[in-house]
Amino acid sequence: MSPLPVISRRRFAGSLAALGAAAGLGATAACGGPARAASGGQSKVIRYQGSVGTVLPLELASSLGYLGDVRLDWIGNSISGPQDIQATVTGDTDIGGAFNGAIIRLIAAGAPITSLYGYYGIDSTIWSGFYVREKSEIRSVRDLPGKTIGANTIGGQTEDVLKLKLKQAGLDEDAAQLVVVPPVSAESSLRSGQLDVAVLGGPLRDLALSRGGIRPVFTDYGLLGTFTCGCDVMRDKFIRDNPDTVRTVVAGTAKAVAWSQTQPRARVVEQFARIIKARRRQEDDSQLKFWHGYGIAERGAVIAEREFTVWLDRLVDTGIVGRHQLSVSQLYTNRFNPYASRGAT
């Protein structure tokens, strides 16, 4: 079995800078094409990437009829949050979602994007754990220095949660080594000994636990509590040029999230199953039986300041972002969301 590749922080930082520099070109290029609106009008087509076997809040909104005359154009599936928002920056899509820490990194690199609403999070039923084999000598976070930990991507939630936990324990944030592992391979890599620790969440976590022989060192829910972790973003130019469309998309998606937060779970899962069947992408919908919610903390996907400050403060403390380089107000807005309280930014 071949060794797992170690994540290169320098290479990732370089790609962010390049994307930031190219952002203006990507935003301009994205305005053309046969699927776009007629000259002088606002676009009524939103290009996006999906996720295999799951239903995004945006897709739920469309299926419930909450997007009015705005049509979704699926261009393929994303491989990770950072890749998804990078596609938005370069103009390949009009909207993308990622972990809030990844969004901050990209904006700090010069990408002209803004977060519009929360699209996933964690709570008491929706969380990820840092798992080890049952007989592992790793008992706490203090045993992690020098160990290898599987992550699906750099700059994502796994990395920042890990580093926040290490810092709380008084340890060097780079004490543990991250390696790139596709989520579907994480459990087998852990059990075979390729990894010391594997991050498991959702259906993959439940399946792994059903087979026994593993235990968590800590969980992101134990660290953060109920917390919206990621947002959907759009390019600032797209927002300026298409304010009515953006308002429709945000308001409709917020309404869909609120619907999912208040309906019986069985009804939501039934709606998801219909969506997956209707889009005809040859997907396995078996993981829907493990769905318990989006984990979004606020009603209607409203963004709370804390959901960005916790990661911005960490990135400033480590020097990844300059102390006066960004303010929280540059990262997100609730002005298009009808569920936001009066006076929200």
Rank of each mutant, 00 (worst) to 15 (best):
S2G: 09
P5I: 01
S8R: 04
S8C: 10
A13T: 13
G14V: 02
A17F: 12
L19F: 11
G20L: 01
G20Y: 07
A22H: 12
A23R: 06
A23Y: 13
G24K: 15
A29R: 09
G32Y: 08
R36Y: 01
V45I: 02
V45K: 02
L60D: 00
S63K: 03
D73A: 04
I79E: 01
D84S: 14
A87W: 03
V89K: 10
G97W: 06
A102R: 10
L106W: 07
P112H: 06
S115D: 13
Y117W: 08
G121L: 01
I126L: 13
W127Y: 13
E137N: 10
E137L: 10
R142T: 05
K147A: 11
I149C: 12
G150R: 09
A151K: 11
N152L: 09
L162A: 00
A169M: 01
A175N: 09
Q194D: 13
G213M: 09
I214M: 13
V217T: 12
V217G: 10
Y221L: 03
G222A: 14
T226R: 15
T226E: 14
T228W: 13
C229Y: 14
I239Q: 10
V246K: 05
T248V: 14
V250Y: 02
T262W: 02
P264H: 00
Q271H: 11
I275G: 00
R281S: 03
D284E: 13
Q287L: 06
A297F: 09
F308N: 00
F308C: 01
W311I: 06
W311L: 05
D313E: 15
R314L: 09
G319I: 08
Y332S: 11
S341C: 08
G343V: 03
G343K: 02
A344D: 11
